[in-house]
């Protein structure tokens, strides 16, 4: 279970947030809010890119807010810049397993399996610039898959995708959630994007998370 307990963070005195909620394992929470409402701030706090002033983040009853971003039991899909443009599709996925890109035989096979599973097998030597927006998100999802972490954070992952590609990526996320029993925290400005997957919906209002 993901447990956010009195998590307080402020950019300055007049722009601060306090979050307090729980999310059961294998469930998906959709968080809606206008631009600048604090959606991404919440994800950045959980992912470890921002340091809270006070409060705790627990996962499976263990505190994770003191861990380095890479040590936390989560993987994240950003709005943009999910891939390194100078690295191939294979290398981008492999970074999920080894930050030095030195892979064992088993790790290489895991990457190949992920490529196969997400329909990217024939694109492994391509660079991100040679892929469509949907294909790029698939690669990023493949990396999430190989990292095999129980918590998935999604920060408006449909930005820049057309309706058809949105449905494609949506379907993939649903499949991954079922297959890996992922707990998902999905930030969006459009609830239509997430209505088929979300178990709970919340909104950030007046710098607090309110369940709808």
């Amino acid at each position: 279970m993901l447990e956010i307990s009195d998590l307080y963070f402020g950019y300055n005195d007049s722009h601060s947030f306090i979050f307090d909620f729980k999310l059961q394992p294998g469930k998906c929470l959709a968080i809606k809010g206008a631009s600048g409402s604090g959606k991404s701030t919440l994800l950045n706090l959980i992912a470890g890119f921002l340091t809270p002033i006070s409060g705790q983040i627990l996962f499976e009853a263990q505190r994770i807010d003191k861990l380095e971003p890479a040590q936390r039991p989560l993987t994240i899909l950003f709005q943009e810049h999910n891939l390194f443009n100078h690295l191939t599709v294979f290398q981008n996925i492999a970074l999920g397993l080894s930050p030095s890109l030195r892979l064992s035989q088993i790790q290489s096979e895991v990457v190949l399996q992920a490529l196969e599973q997400l329909g990217l097998a024939d694109m492994q030597q391509r660079l991100p610039e040679d892929l469509s927006g949907g294909q790029r998100q698939r690669v990023a999802l493949a990396r999430c898959l190989v990292r095999s972490k129980p918590l998935l954070l999604l920060d408006e992952p449909f930005t820049g995708l057309n309706e058809e590609l949105k449905l494609d990526v949506q379907k993939l996320i649903g499949q991954l959630q079922q297959q890996l029993n992922l707990t998902i925290l999905w930030v969006t400005h459009d609830l239509d994007d997430v209505e088929h997957i979300a178990d709970k919906v919340a909104e950030i209002e007046n710098n607090k998370l309110i369940f709808i």
Binding site: G48, P69, A70, Q71, T75, F84, L87, L95, P99, L101
Partner: peptide, 22 residues
């Protein structure tokens, strides 16, 4: 790439070699 590199634990020389230098 800072957030992604941090999320993947790519730091130090690996960060310079694989991400920054290119």
């Amino acid at each position: 790439h800072d957030h992604l590199a941090k999320a993947l634990g790519i730091t130090g020389l690996n960060r310079f070699r694989l991400i920054d230098w290119p």
